[in-house]
C-alpha cells in the first residue's frame, strides 16, 4: 500500500474525530441546546407541550434521547450531509452553508493568492536589491502592515471608503437588484462588494509573505548553485526564476495551502464587519442565536476545508519538490 492511499484513508478518520469534537464541545457550552428557543417560545406564551413538539420537529437529534444515541444520529446525519435544521433561520443547515460557502471561498482564495503573488514579487525584488533604500523601506512597511490585524483595516476601510466616501457598499455580497447569473453587471457588482473584504484580508499577509520570500531568496542567492549557474553563463532571468524563485518559493508552498485553510476560519470577524453573507457571518449568527446545528455545521465545514488543504499540500509537495520522496519529508 502506498503513501497516497494511506494518506487518503486518514481523512475520514480525521473528519470523524472533528465531528466527535464538535458534537462534544458544543454540548459542553453553558445553556444547553434549545434553551434560548425555549425561552423565546415561552415568552410568546406557548405552552410547554407545544414547545417540546416544536423543538423535536426542528432538529435531527431528539434531546430526550441518551447522549450516545444523539451522537450516532448526528454522525449518520453528517454522512448523509444532513446537518440538521437551523433553529434561527428555520432552514436546513446544509442549505445555509451551501449558499454561504462559495462567498467565503471566493474571498479567501482570491485574497490569499493575491497576498502570495504580491508578497513573492515584493520579497524577491527586495532580495535582489538587498540593502538599498527600496529594501529597507519595503521591509519597514512589511513589518508595519503585518503587525496591524486585518480587522483594523476592515473597520478603517468601512468607515472611510464605504460610509464617508460611499465608494464601496457597506454590506451584502452583491446588489440585490441585479439578478444573479453570469452577466457582466452581476460580476462587477460581486467584485465591487468583495473588494474591501479582499483588500483588508490581503494587506497584512503581503507583508509577512514578502519578508519570508526576501529571507528565503537571500539565502538561495548565497547558495553555491546560483554562483555556478552564473559562471555557466545562464541569463539573469533564468537564474532569477528557475534557480532563485523556484527554490525560495518551495518552502512556502505548504504554508500557502495551510494558510488557505486557516484563513477560512479567519473570515468570521471579517464577514461580520462587512455583513458579508459567508460562512463566518452565519457562524456568528449561529453563536448569537444559540443555533447549535448551524454552529456545528459551520465548524465542520471549516475543519474539513483545513483537512483537505493539508491533504492537498501533502499530496502535491512531492511533485513540486523532487527532493521530498513522498512520506518522509524531513526537510522543511
Amino acid at each position: 500500500m502506498n503513501y497516497y492511499l494511506r494518506r487518503t484513508i486518514r481523512i475520514p478518520a480525521t473528519i470523524l474525530g472533528v465531528a466527535t469534537l464538535t458534537f462534544g464541545l458544543i454540548r459542553l457550552l453553558p445553556g444547553g441546546p434549545f434553551t434560548q428557543l425555549r425561552i423565546q417560545l415561552r415568552r410568546r406564551g406557548m405552552d410547554a407541550q407545544e414547545i417540546n413538539a416544536r423543538i423535536e420537529a426542528l432538529q435531527n437529534i431528539r434531546p430526550d434521547k441518551s447522549l450516545p444515541e444523539q451522537y450516532i444520529d448526528y454522525l449518520i446525519g453528517v454522512v448523509q450531509l444532513d446537518l440538521g435544521q437551523s433553529i434561527s433561520l428555520n432552514k436546513p443547515v446544509i442549505e445555509v452553508i451551501g449558499q454561504a460557502l462559495p462567498w467565503t471561498v471566493f474571498i479567501v482564495i482570491v485574497s490569499t493568492l493575491l497576498m502570495f503573488i504580491l508578497g513573492v514579487l515584493l520579497g524577491s525584488l527586495q532580495a535582489y536589491w538587498e540593502g538599498t533604500t527600496f529594501d529597507s523601506v519595503g521591509s519597514g512597511l512589511s513589518i508595519l502592515f503585518m503587525s496591524i490585524p486585518y480587522y483594523i483595516y476592515a473597520v478603517a476601510f468601512l468607515v472611510v471608503l464605504a460610509f464617508s466616501w460611499r465608494v464601496f457598499p457597506t454590506s451584502a455580497a452583491a446588489d440585490r437588484s441585479i439578478e444573479a447569473g453570469f452577466t457582466v453587471a452581476y460580476a462587477v457588482s460581486v467584485l465591487h462588494h468583495a473588494a474591501l473584504p479582499i483588500i483588508s484580508f490581503t494587506i497584512g499577509g503581503v507583508g509577512s509573505t514578502a519578508l519570508s520570500m526576501r529571507g528565503n531568496s537571500i539565502q538561495v542567492l548565497g547558495r553555491e548553485f546560483v554562483e555556478v549557474a552564473r559562471l555557466r553563463g545562464l541569463s539573469d532571468q533564468r537564474i532569477a526564476t528557475r534557480y532563485v524563485a523556484m527554490n525560495a518559493i518551495l518552502p512556502m508552498y505548504t504554508g500557502l495551502l495551510l494558510l488557505i485553510g486557516f484563513r477560512l476560519g479567519g473570515t468570521v470577524v471579517l464577514e461580520e464587519i462587512f455583513t458579508y453573507p459567508g460562512l463566518g457571518f452565519y457562524l456568528i449568527e449561529g453563536v448569537n442565536a444559540n443555533d447549535y446545528p448551524l454552529m456545528m455545521g459551520c465548524f465542520m465545514v471549516i475543519t474539513i476545508a483545513l483537512v483537505l488543504a493539508v491533504y492537498v499540500a501533502d499530496m502535491t509537495y512531492g511533485l513540486i519538490d523532487p527532493r521530498i520522496s513522498v512520506g518522509d519529508a524531513d526537510e522543511y
Partner: peptide
Amino acid sequence: MHSFNPTMKIKTHFTETLQSH
C-alpha cells in the same frame, strides 16, 4: 551537492548551459 539546482534534473543543467552559449 551544492553546485546543482536541487529542483532540476541533471539533464536540464546540461541543456540550459548549451542553450545559453
